[in-house]
Amino acid sequence: MLEKIVALSRKASPWVAHFNSGGCNACDIEVMATITPRFDVERLGIQLKGSPRHADILICTGPVTGQIRERLLRIYHQMPQPKYVVAVGSCALSGGVFHGCYNVMGGVDQVIPVDVYVPGCPPRPDAIIAGIAKVLDKMQEDALSKDGREREVDHGC
């Protein structure tokens, strides 16, 4: 019972960590823009956090470069359960314009599981917020389901 309450209250104030996995920076500044006055997600209880250890949701922007792959995995492992991942931007979805570049894995979901995809190059901050809201729905579902959510990637780090 207590766990259910904790899980549900998580939805009221999700903490978000942001990680650029090799993108062009445009998506990053749009993610940053969501916390500034025009969009201001903090009024909804969403906080951008520095450390993945405090975060419920990881926002990834970028196609995942060769050098960053391992760091991304490491950061994913550092997040506490239950963890959710939002891939922001076309290149985080599939590689986008960088598809086929020699140092690009081609999408965040090649490395870690992704819950919500936000397309756009870059998506507007509104779209990013909508993406986070989608995760909240998922959080609620998971909180109310019988065995909650346990998931971990197994490909080695």
């Binding site: 650029n20 090799g22 993108g23 970028g62 196609p63 470069t65 060769g66 050098q67 960053i68 760091r71 960088f98 086929g100 570049c101 020699y102 140092n103 690009v104």
Partner: peptide, 11 residues
Amino acid sequence: LGYVHRGIEKA
């Protein structure tokens, strides 16, 4: 640096 190296010049 190098975490964002994508290989654009080759592409």
